[in-house]
């Protein structure tokens, strides 16, 4: 067994184990942390497959940004796990049957008979100075220009939808307007009343 294979199997085992932990942990924060582990191990596998750029992006974007935000949200929300778990045992047998059926199908199809090296030759190794970031860059804005633009529009829609759904003016909400506080004049707040002196 070469070193490369060894690394692959270790990383693959980490991915599978941590993915199992993601769905089986009681505490959602732990699940999120295991998901981060799964992402990191995945990016290791991608590095082995010579997809360096994607591996780095996976760590930077998913681990660095998405999952951190996700953890924030999880910690902010008070999630009642007992409610979420209700019905888990009742649905478990059905779930297991479905999972086994899916797994069996996948193993039968995505195996060496259909996707082995006889069917698909191993890709040629690239030299050490080969840059696949450059390769992606050269097609991203030319060949894949149209899908790229659509992805940009989807992000715009996500912004609009998120703001549209969460922005609301509550009628009874009390808030201060600094601008009007600053321009306030003495006359508006203080009323000077001249009174006759009281006679004792």
């Amino acid at each position: 067994m070469t070193l490369e294979k060894l690394i692959f199997y270790v990383l693959a085992a980490v991915v599978i184990l941590s993915a199992t932990m993601v769905v089986s942990r009681r505490n959602p924060v732990h699940s999120a942390l295991f998901l981060i582990l799964a992402f990191v191990a995945c990016s290791g596998i991608w590095l082995l497959a010579e997809a360096e750029f994607l591996a780095i992006v996976l760590v930077l974007v998913y681990v660095g940004a998405v999952m951190v935000l996700f953890l924030f949200v999880l910690m902010m929300l008070d999630i009642d796990i007992a409610v979420l778990r209700a019905g888990f045992i009742k649905l478990l047998p059905l779930g297991i049957i479905m999972a086994i059926a899916m797994a069996a199908e996948l193993i039968l199809i995505v195996g060496p008979e259909n996707f082995g090296l006889q069917e698909y030759a191993a890709p040629a190794r690239h030299a050490a100075d080969y840059s696949n970031t450059e390769e992606i860059g050269s097609v991203l804005y030319t060949v894949y220009m149209y899908p790229f633009e659509i992805a940009a529009v989807i992000l715009l829609v996500a912004i609009i939808a998120a703001i549209g759904l969460t922005m609301r003016k509550r009628p009874g909400a009390k808030y201060l307007d600094p601008a009007s506080q600053v321009v306030v004049k003495r006359d508006e707040r203080v009323r000077l009343v001249s009174m006759d002196a009281e006679k004792g």
Binding site: P147, I150, A151, V153, I154, V157, I160, A161, L165
Partner: peptide
């Protein structure tokens, strides 16, 4: 292409999710 059709579908679906709410 599969890529375009998927992105179009997601664009449509995202808008519809927001509109339903």
């Amino acid at each position: 292409s599969f890529l375009t059709i998927y992105l179009g579908l997601e664009l449509l679906a995202l808008c519809l999710y927001a509109l339903v709410a």
